[in-house]
Amino acid sequence: MSEQLRPEDAPPSLYDEHGNPRFFADPAMDRFVAVVMNLAQEVWVQEERLLALEEAKSGEALDRDAKAKEFINRVFAPIRGA
């Protein structure tokens, strides 16, 4: 259902043949970024399952937001300062 309305000054070269934004010279890279993020998300889901077990064992609630931030910072450290 989605049409491709764009700003008047948007050159067509910003988008691929399906209208998706294109950022890298090799279009496979745009898809690869999505794969890496999806994969990291699924790893984090497993991480939360482990945290739940730890919490059950220790009886103490962990700060999951803080843990998620540490996890994301660790995983994506290589892209900082690009």
């Binding site: 990291a40 984090w44 998620a68 931030k69 994301i72």
Partner: peptide
């Protein structure tokens, strides 16, 4: 579900980064 909460937390964290 716990998995859905984890997915949402991850996305919020990614957006913050």
């Amino acid at each position: 579900t716990p998995d859905e909460i984890a997915r949402g937390r991850f996305v919020s964290g990614m957006r913050s980064l």
